[in-house]
Design a protein around this nucleic acid. Structure first.
Length: 293
DNA sequence: ACGAGAACCTGTTTGC
DNA sequence: TGCAAACAGGTTCTCG
């Protein structure tokens, strides 16, 4: 899934196509994704104008002109793309497994929400594993919504500094790897970028979170910031499912130093270590035992 | 109260 | 070659 850089890339891809456009039709093709859709979901969006495409952590926030925000989480395999009226490009990127014709050209069986906007713009939300979800929240009170209320700082926000991270990690016995995946500590990191940030900061993923204060925490915030900024710059990572809004693939995966590099030489100059894979709270961690302490 | 693990769902890769 | 187990970017709930 999409971690913060991928969601930001999707946001940037969608924004010029959706902003200031009215939603003419929304076709919700099943009652739920990870959770049920809110009541009268399509009715409450059809006829509204999308005034802005924003993002908080891994949430895409489409601001509507009636004071509500259409919240989208892509889960592990969600894609939100611009459909090409000609059926090429994104349709191809969505791996056109035989679908059926619904008046929207050929659709995939995992295309769960189809949207038609003014000007002939069509959006497709596709999600194979259905871990994603959508909701409608009041824009003025969105910070109090259950989805957003407990999120920590954005990694690129200046408020995310060494002192703030130290404070968030205080008293935590869990490994630093797990702590960074906690969206209340810092919002938007996932398995890949946590591994990358720890590699850069030279911190062992097994180290107790509370033992990363002061200078180490400072270095860690800088590593997180750099990894996230570079990944956004590269248009995100393309693993199995992820594609940008226009169906193009991201490039950051070519820059991984740790993630999915088990058994390969550590790329840190002069290190000489070998990347190892371990499992922490049920998920793969990739790190270099030599320079990550 | 905290932290580890399971559960949610489908598709692809790996290993015997 | 074939089949089954392992694994995949996230979040949330339960259990100890």
């Amino acid at each position: 899934m999409p971690e913060l850089p991928e969601v930001e890339t999707v946001r940037r891809g969608l924004a010029p196509h959706v902003e200031a456009r009215r939603v003419l039709r929304l076709d919700q093709r099943r009652p739920d994704l990870r959770f049920p859709f809110p009541d009268r979901f399509a009715d409450r969006i059809e006829g509204r104008r999308i005034v802005a495409a924003a993002r908080r952590a891994k949430y895409l926030l489409l601001r509507l002109d009636d004071g509500w925000t259409w919240l989208v989480h892509l889960g592990m395999s969600g894609r939100f793309t611009i459909a090409d009226p000609g059926g090429k490009g994104p349709a191809k990127a969505r791996s056109a497994q035989a679908g059926h014709n619904s008046g929207w050209a050929l659709i995939d069986k995992h295309d769960h929400v189809l949207v038609e906007l003014e000007g002939g713009v069509r959006l497709v939300y596709n999600d194979v594993r259905r871990f994603g979800f959508m909701d409608l929240i009041e824009t003025a009170r969105e910070d109090d919504s259950p989805h957003l209320a407990r999120l920590g700082p954005e990694p690129l926000d200046p408020a995310f500094d060494g002192a703030a991270l130290s404070a968030a990690l205080r008293g935590k016995n869990t490994p630093i790897k797990a702590a960074l995946l906690d969206q209340a500590v810092v919002a938007g990191l996932g398995n890949i970028y946590v591994c990358e940030a720890l590699w850069r900061a030279g911190i062992s993923p097994k180290r107790r979170a509370a033992s990363v204060p002061g200078l180490r925490a400072q270095r860690l915030t800088e590593a997180v910031r750099a990894v996230i900024a570079e990944a956004i710059e590269a248009g995100g990572s393309s693993l199995r499912d992820y594609v940008q809004a226009d169906g193009e693939l991201g490039y950051f995966q070519h820059a991984f130093d740790a993630y999915d590099r088990e058994g390969t030489p550590c790329r840190r100059p002069g290190c000489g270590g070998t990347i190892r894979r371990i499992v922490q709270s049920g998920r793969s961690t990739f790190y270099c035992p030599d320079h990550q302490r």
